[in-house]
Amino acid sequence: MNTTSQTVNLGSIETIPVGQGRCFVIDGHEIAVFRQRDGRLFATQNRCPHKQGPLAEGVIGAGQVVCPLHAHKFDLTTGAGSQAGECLKTYRVSESNREVLLHL
């Protein structure tokens, strides 16, 4: 996926509730897409590197997500984690005509 550039349309922005995340499975990969209250979109791997918690179910805010299992925190832009050695893969995501576009 890294060597080629691909854009995936994930459908209407309204499928992601304001201030929450949602998990999409693309080619067998779980990707969490977040819609922050201020309108910003983020996309990361869905599984927490700690114990595979579903990050899409986490509480978000100020560009961060908190894993629902053990409250490990991650920066949604850089993927950097609150714990040493934990980092998320992040993806570019944008909105066009009320639709969510994921750039792989």
Partner: peptide, 15 residues
């Protein structure tokens, strides 16, 4: 519960 589907359709791809 937001009953999230887990599918997604690719709309375009470019090399």
């Amino acid at each position: 519960v937001q009953w999230c589907g887990t599918g997604a359709r690719p709309c375009s791809s470019r090399k």
